[in-house]
């Protein structure tokens, strides 16, 4: 049995904060990693497991996982595909795009007309630029009937397309989100 009790909100207790600081940059690769955490925090292993479950349930951590370095695995190219989807269909079709196995994130975001008319963002990853382009085509096939066709905004000299892909040219900064000490 565990004595661990949750603070029931998004605030972290002092113990939880220590837990986060201890686990965010990695756990030692040992048979009983939670026992290691327990020793560091001077609580029981059962309490560590209960706290981990609770932090997951509260949505503060997504998971404790083997986090791969996608770049090292050959996924050198990412494409942010952006789509101007008719508002009444965006929820249904956004979920369909989110289910595609090569999509890592799929989000609804606000438009800023006239300079930004895309409301659906789907991030795809590939080992070649061709692979990324092919994923864009697959998403387009799915969305073809719900894309909004707009007249060009001639006042602003802006050509409004139904979709686009923004491929990464360089990573200028990438640090995982970390709780500050």
């Amino acid at each position: 049995m565990s004595n661990y009790t949750s603070p029931h909100n998004l605030q972290l207790s002092s113990l939880e904060r220590q837990f986060v600081l201890l686990t965010q940059s990695g756990l030692p690769i040992v048979a009983q990693p939670y026992q290691y955490v327990a020793e560091q925090l001077q609580i029981t292993e059962a309490d560590v497991l209960a706290m981990t479950t609770d932090l997951k349930e509260r949505g503060i951590i997504r998971r404790i996982a083997a986090v791969p370095n996608h770049y090292k695995l050959g996924y050198r190219y990412n494409g942010m595909t952006v789509w101007d989807v008719e508002d009444e269909y965006v929820s249904e079709f956004g979920q369909a795009v989110g289910r595609l196995p090569f999509v890592s994130h799929c989000y609804l975001r606000p438009r800023h007309l006239p300079q930004w008319n895309y409301n659906l963002f789907a991030m795809v990853h590939g080992k070649t630029t061709q692979e990324v382009q092919q994923y864009r085509t697959q998403i387009k096939d799915l969305l073809i009937n719900v894309l909004q066709v707009r007249n060009d905004d001639s006042d602003h000299g802006i050509k409004l397309m139904t979709n686009d892909i923004l491929t990464s040219t360089e990573i200028l900064k990438k640090t995982g989100l970390r709780l500050k000490r």
Partner: peptide, 29 residues
């Protein structure tokens, strides 16, 4: 268990795993 531990250690050493650890929910941060 030994094989799994040594496989994870090898992946970690090669940089193929960036870590075995907690993944935060940005939206809750």
């Amino acid at each position: 268990e030994e094989e799994v531990l040594s496989a994870i250690q090898a992946l970690d050493n090669a940089g193929i795993l960036s870590r075995v650890g907690a993944v935060f929910n940005h939206k809750k941060a």
